[in-house]
Amino acid sequence: MTKRTLSAEQENERQYELRTYILGYGLALILTLIPFALAAWGSLSRMTLWWVIGACALVQIVVHFRFFLHVTLAKNKREDLQLILFTALILIIMVGGTLWIMFNLYSRMMPSIMP
C-alpha cells in the first residue's frame, strides 16, 4: 500500500490540490513562453514588448502565489494576503521612489547615463 488510506474527502482534496499544481505549471509555462517567444522572434516595437513582458511577469507572479503558494482570497488566508499586499506597497514606495528620485537626479546632473 503506497497511498495512505484516504477518506473520500481527503481524496477529493488531493485531486483538487494536484490539479492546482498542474494548472499552475501550465499557466506559468504559457506565461513564460509568450515573452520569450516574442523577444526571440516577435516584431513588436520595443516599448510594446516591454509592456507585454512586464504584464506576463506580473500575471505569472500572481499565478505562482495562487497555485504554488496557495494564497487565495479565502477568508482564512487574509493574513498572508495582507502581508503580501503590504509588502507590495512598501516595494512600490521604496523602489518606485528610488527610481523617481534617481532618474530625476540623472536628468538634472548626468543626462548621458539615462538609458
Binding site: I90, I93, G97, W100, I101, N104, L105, M109
Partner: peptide
Amino acid sequence: FTVWLHHFFTMGQSAHV
C-alpha cells in the same frame, strides 16, 4: 516609509520631488 528624501533635500533633485 514615505519621507526618506528629507535627509537629502540638497542632493540636486528638482523642486517638485
